[in-house]
Design a protein around this nucleic acid. Sequence first.
DNA 1: CTGAAAGCGCTTACAG
DNA 2: CTGAAAGCGCTTACAG
Lengths: 330, 330
Amino acid sequence: MKDVASRAGVGLKTVSRVVNGEPGVTAGTRRRVQEAIDALGFRRNDSARVLRKGRTATVGLILEDLADPFYGPLSRAVEEVARAHDTLLINGSSAHDANRERELALALCARRVDGLLVVPAGTDHRYLEPEMRAGIATVFVDRPARAVEADTVLSDNHGGARAGVAHLIAHGHRRIGYIGDVPGIHTSDERLRGYRTAMEEAGLPVRPDRVSVGSTAPQRVRRAAEEMLDGPDPVTALLTGNNRVTVTVVRVLAERQPHRPVALVGFDDFELADLLRPAVTVVAQDPAGLGRVAAQRLFARMAQAELEPSVVELPTRLVVRGSGELPPVD
Amino acid sequence: MKDVASRAGVGLKTVSRVVNGEPGVTAGTRRRVQEAIDALGFRRNDSARVLRKGRTATVGLILEDLADPFYGPLSRAVEEVARAHDTLLINGSSAHDANRERELALALCARRVDGLLVVPAGTDHRYLEPEMRAGIATVFVDRPARAVEADTVLSDNHGGARAGVAHLIAHGHRRIGYIGDVPGIHTSDERLRGYRTAMEEAGLPVRPDRVSVGSTAPQRVRRAAEEMLDGPDPVTALLTGNNRVTVTVVRVLAERQPHRPVALVGFDDFELADLLRPAVTVVAQDPAGLGRVAAQRLFARMAQAELEPSVVELPTRLVVRGSGELPPVD
DNA sequence: CTGAAAGCGCTTACAG
DNA sequence: CTGAAAGCGCTTACAG
């Protein structure tokens, strides 16, 4: 910038004005400066700009795994909102690891992102309190923070699971199993609670051998499903707690064809669910909606730091396709 | 940092040493500084650091759409390589728009990312030459840059499509159609070329009414498929040019069941392809491999700017599942 | 072992 | 309309 100024024979500030399209420069001067810029191949360094301005025009998004199809649309929706605010997005995957989440979040804060969106992997987010006090706007998505009061955008996990099980009950099922994710994860706990609620509302027993929570690794899910299907008092229907679980259970059921058909409702929609036979009935979340609403809240808070923390819960939607409407077969 | 120094009664440089864990500070001094840091809630500002150091420890990745399942694993693989180099990743979606690609790339360059990975949407990348000359390492992924010589990592699109069509021919098909993406996109052109090569090698005619390229919008693909299936001289097999096209064609074929079965090989693998009936035979790319290899090349170039530009082509893999082995039915 | 000065590349506040 | 000075928050190069 100094070189441009001396080459154009003007002051530093004039170059700055031209580069930023500010008024108060005669056409002639502007042209001379522009020529110097072109000749020297000058490109403004936004890092230096940031240092003076105090805003980085960057927000961070920490999620579990960018390769999971649930997070692609979520991240993309955040990006679109950020773009509308001329802001770039730094993505980071915690890989389901609380330490990695923390490292990433603090690295983003050290870069002074203007805002931070976090899908919590960890169970204690007090480490973010100093950052939030220091002015980094923070919104939690998909799961609430633990031990910290902050803006949060969730799906109605309890209501969705409850509706899914009620649907199975309405189709005559009484022996319904639940296979879900690791306990302690908010979404996982809420969906299990929804299962319990629906069962209790129908006066049905919640038997421990019909509830299996743990890793979503195919091996574990497969074993859990087989135990429920092959026991002495086998289930006639299943609710699966997320898309990873659903996919494995669909595989297990497909292998058993043309055995006794088992009804299935999956939490989370997935591509091609309608093309499977039977097509899979799901409780659909809106990942893009989660991202959009959370990002909008983030920018609102960035503009107005003194907002009261709010919790928003987005509705889920039961998508009827066939697998959830199979009648019970003993 | 100034406040910390005066509170601890030391110089600025000593604080810097403590913050960065550099040697040459007595334990007592270190402790005093640390106490001041804690008391004041000091957090180093990495933006300022960047300005002095010249490195931002950030790389950018521009792809088409983060919500597309092809790019999730690719982006994630880049992130892992970046993480191994203590570098953050800024993602940006061009949304298939050349102008948006350019805006994003230049915005990332203005922030002085150390490196840039680009899945080209545009057809002329000369706009990046000044940035590359100025020292921003750049690698193109999945498609080559136009009008610029640079590192490039591709899939073997021609070979993959050729193998897919040869597979259909080996199963007795002679009337084989190709439905692909917009012409002008490198991957699209190469796959079409692979189709032609295989047909010509078998002495089969490449008829214009059996080749349809254009938008991957379901509506267009559906019409293209129906024309080839319902014409006077209908195809007995199809090669689809990417995952978006495959999904739509699978839908069309499923709706026509139990009509005359049509063989299908899809370019790109997709989740649950094995659960469809028939399971879908595909030419699988390795999106994570593309991301990994490209990112490794990027960091190699960042370390050693004078490397000769190279082009790497990753192999594809034919995954036999059933749809590609259906015999021709007239 | 420790620190004062200069500087990274911009913008802000002010004066002319 | 234009520019010189100060400063954003660090690190580098050097001296003590």
